[in-house]
Write a protein that binds this DNA or RNA. Sequence first.
DNA 1: AATGAATGAGTCTTCATTCAT
DNA 2: GATGAATGAAGACTCATTCAT
Lengths: 213, 213, 213, 213
Amino acid sequence: MTDGQSDPRRRARKTALLDAARRRFAQDGFAGTSVASIVREAGVAQGTFYLYFENKAHLLVHLRAEILRDFSAALDRAIARDAPADARLVQALENLYAAVRRHRKMLRVIRQATSGDEIDRVWVEGRRVLAGPLGRLLAEGRAEGRFDLDAPPSFSAHLLLSLFDDLLFDALEYRVPAGGRATLRGATRFVLRGLGVARPRIDDLCPSTARAA
Amino acid sequence: MTDGQSDPRRRARKTALLDAARRRFAQDGFAGTSVASIVREAGVAQGTFYLYFENKAHLLVHLRAEILRDFSAALDRAIARDAPADARLVQALENLYAAVRRHRKMLRVIRQATSGDEIDRVWVEGRRVLAGPLGRLLAEGRAEGRFDLDAPPSFSAHLLLSLFDDLLFDALEYRVPAGGRATLRGATRFVLRGLGVARPRIDDLCPSTARAA
Amino acid sequence: MTDGQSDPRRRARKTALLDAARRRFAQDGFAGTSVASIVREAGVAQGTFYLYFENKAHLLVHLRAEILRDFSAALDRAIARDAPADARLVQALENLYAAVRRHRKMLRVIRQATSGDEIDRVWVEGRRVLAGPLGRLLAEGRAEGRFDLDAPPSFSAHLLLSLFDDLLFDALEYRVPAGGRATLRGATRFVLRGLGVARPRIDDLCPSTARAA
Amino acid sequence: MTDGQSDPRRRARKTALLDAARRRFAQDGFAGTSVASIVREAGVAQGTFYLYFENKAHLLVHLRAEILRDFSAALDRAIARDAPADARLVQALENLYAAVRRHRKMLRVIRQATSGDEIDRVWVEGRRVLAGPLGRLLAEGRAEGRFDLDAPPSFSAHLLLSLFDDLLFDALEYRVPAGGRATLRGATRFVLRGLGVARPRIDDLCPSTARAA
DNA sequence: AATGAATGAGTCTTCATTCAT
DNA sequence: GATGAATGAAGACTCATTCAT
């Protein structure tokens, strides 16, 4: 039996390929990266690639799934804490921000790539996955009397997610004035106000850095 | 001298090329569209293309600029009206929504295309262009005592723009639950609350369709 | 020593591989069939294939030989009977026709495959094998005064074989008008006339179906 | 206007490509010949090939059509003569033999190639084209009292064609004993007898070379 | 003997761009 | 200015065969 060591080896190879792809994509974009350059960097033969991935586009499915898993974990970590809903929300937004930051380059690549059906499905599914816990958090906050939603929690959750991944992605990517930390603070405060949190509580949870000029 | 008629002819040709490109891109994406198919549709020779555009990617610069101009006009039309700032903001958001809707397909194409430096520059520039008038509207609203910003107007403007182009783009593209009209209403109300507009006034300007469950 | 069971096992494996190849070739042609698909269907490992066959092309040698054996048996069965030479010839042609029918798909595949030297050799050899007994039958028929050959029996035998394998193959393959049974009858009668058999005897041995229009 | 010389140039290029293909195919077979080797031999760029042919397989359509045209001309030349039907038939068979001889190599290639639908259609069509005049010749011969067919002329025509292209092809290809001229004579005599031509007349039209051993 | 992961040369085809006319 | 034939580099993917286990 040679299976004893084949599995870890498989896993290692796949990881090597994925890592190489991530690096090449970040550098040259999806279309600009050839399978040849990926295998060269991973140190395997051309044909080996197709032992691990159906085709070039399939790499994106994996890469996207990885990112989604990380986003999901970031959210869950914040929500699982023992604290008032609004405080947990602030933490959740912060974690999300950090995650966007971590994956900024790959997010850009994924946006660039012509999205096949399967890739789209993963993405939409991902949105749903993230919106679930976030929606529940908003519902809890409303029950606790901390949020004053005027739309169903799930809808508000989608709104917030959009705001946080796309907006922050852009902030980081295009260096909109007042990006970075200030953007996080500003956006968080904006969200809290949109959720009907009172001004003093907002100042408490998330002190404003930017002085309203 | 035949120049007298060469200029209008040049313009017509360029337009024909641009129109053809728009149609092909919308159908097949940027990478999926060949220069050959564009010139065929425009009814000119292959080589002629390069008399009007440096290369294929350059088409995007023009297409992007066109969209930006349209967005800008949509915004200005609303802001120029004679009405309170908050009412003008609601109208502006609605116009923006309509513009996103109109250009959805091309926006997607532009996102897909590998972004050369020049294309990026146009995009960032565009954001700035839009943020200008919007920021001034927010400032006016604050002066009128209608908005209660806790960040500089320009920053808030960027926030709103992001919310409205990316979010709505996604809503239309991925059919997030409660997309379409309801999304516009929901997002508008969220924005108004974030700007500190009082509940009765919000109901006035933008009656809620979705009943908070 | 485990060799006691290795031999039957070897034989079984080889047969399994050959059967799988026949099925795949019939479906997808020679070039269109990968060794991978053959071993998958045969339920053995990729590398095992090369323990039984030098290479992919070598399969054809075996397959061809099999077919030849079947043709040969079909011929011998008819010739060995106890009957006049002309009647045996009619039966031989019928058997040949049935054999072509049975192996039609593989015959086509074999024609397609690029013929290495060895494959050619098998084919020529096969013709010779078939021409032997058929030539002797013709000689007997001449001795019996039933055939009136004006070429050596072996040459006539080659003529008949060509007529019967290629012609009938084409008839079946390309659906020439009046293919199938009628073709068999027509060709048989043509052959009998070519061999100088008298009209009434021909009608006896092989009644005409097609009315000469 | 540059059209004046573009057309002859196009034609010359196409011919060059076709010639190169013929040479390469004859040498290495269809599957064994790469487009690269063809363009190299024709002295044009890789991409140029696809300006003249849809794809590699399409070459066969042209090559096949060429051969068919030549066969057809060979037949017509004999049939159009002013002579008795049986004499014209003998001439027709001789011309056909020469044509098979000329195109032997390409016929082999065409048989090898996996035949797409379009290619098959050309082939079947070709058979029909050839069978037409030949069938009419047989009918004329019957009317003149020279042939005694016991199947419809068109069917007999197909029979003869098969006999003459496939059989002779094999004779030349596999060097069956008594190939070449003797084969032509033998086959012709066989055919004449099958058509009911009397022995003295046969000896007249086509003196036997092979002494029946 | 059997396995099956790994190899890498080789295939067809596309297409942005150039340039002689 | 306009043309469109020609270019040739580049790309994704396949698959017969090998070889360490």
